[in-house]
Simulated assay, not measured.
Amino acid sequence: MSLYISIDPGMKKCGLLLADMQSGEVIEAGVASLNKFSDLVSQWNEDHEITKIIIGNGTNCKYIENKLKRNNSFNINYVNERGSTLRARFRYWEIWPPNYFIRWLPKEILFPPANLDAIVALILLEDFLKYRLIWPSKVNIKTWP
């Protein structure tokens, strides 16, 4: 099994995503505080043996990298995250299409109800891989405080 972790770094929280490259599916996704994210990555690595870690090259990325290296997480790659938050809004509506009359409104004016950090992590991984992943209906965006 070839598993990748994608991280959207931020000042107070990170979007995290665990995906299986063989099936092309997201396994787990969510948002974690800066205090929790490295513990979660370590846990995923213990449970699954991670192949690569992808990090957005924007805000706080060096802090994230240093914290991961202290926890013996290596094979880290950077991805340009310019424009990823805006693209995540559109991707959100592809995964969870709006209901009723809302679906007829332009996607540019719709704001997703959920935190987008996990979707940004998805966008970063898809940019790195150069293909789209499948988000199974059973995978919900979690919050790890």
Rank of each mutant, 00 (worst) to 15 (best):
residue 52 K to M: 07
residue 115 N to I: 03
residue 51 T to D: 13
residue 61 C to S: 13
residue 116 L to V: 09
residue 53 I to H: 03
residue 51 T to P: 00
residue 59 T to C: 10
residue 110 L to Y: 05
residue 27 I to K: 14
residue 129 L to N: 06
residue 37 F to M: 04
residue 145 P to V: 05
residue 61 C to G: 00
residue 94 E to H: 04
residue 67 K to E: 14
residue 38 S to V: 15
residue 34 L to M: 15
residue 42 S to C: 08
residue 44 W to L: 06
residue 4 Y to E: 04
residue 65 E to N: 01
residue 123 I to H: 05
residue 40 L to N: 01
residue 16 L to R: 02
residue 93 W to E: 01
residue 120 V to L: 05
residue 58 G to P: 09
residue 116 L to H: 06
residue 10 G to H: 04
residue 133 L to A: 01
residue 94 E to A: 01
residue 99 N to M: 10
residue 110 L to F: 07
residue 54 I to Q: 01
residue 19 A to F: 07
residue 2 S to G: 01
residue 106 P to D: 07
residue 135 W to F: 14
residue 85 T to N: 04
residue 90 F to K: 14
residue 86 L to H: 09
residue 2 S to N: 14
residue 61 C to L: 00
residue 43 Q to L: 14
residue 106 P to A: 04
residue 131 Y to A: 01
residue 143 T to H: 11
residue 9 P to F: 10
residue 67 K to L: 15
residue 93 W to L: 13
residue 96 W to S: 11
residue 125 L to M: 15
residue 142 K to F: 04
residue 40 L to Y: 09
residue 73 S to L: 15
residue 45 N to L: 02
residue 118 A to V: 05
residue 94 E to F: 01
residue 130 K to M: 09
residue 56 G to D: 08
residue 49 E to F: 09
residue 94 E to G: 00
residue 106 P to E: 05
residue 113 P to H: 03
residue 12 K to M: 08
residue 13 K to L: 01
residue 17 L to I: 12
residue 117 D to F: 02
residue 101 F to A: 04
residue 40 L to G: 00
residue 102 I to W: 09
residue 119 I to E: 09
residue 117 D to T: 01
residue 88 A to N: 07
residue 58 G to L: 09
residue 70 R to W: 07
residue 129 L to P: 07
residue 24 G to H: 12
residue 79 V to Y: 11
residue 52 K to W: 08
residue 87 R to K: 15
residue 15 G to V: 02
residue 5 I to Q: 08
residue 94 E to N: 07
residue 59 T to F: 09
residue 84 S to W: 07
residue 35 N to M: 05
residue 95 I to V: 13
residue 56 G to Y: 06
residue 108 E to N: 12
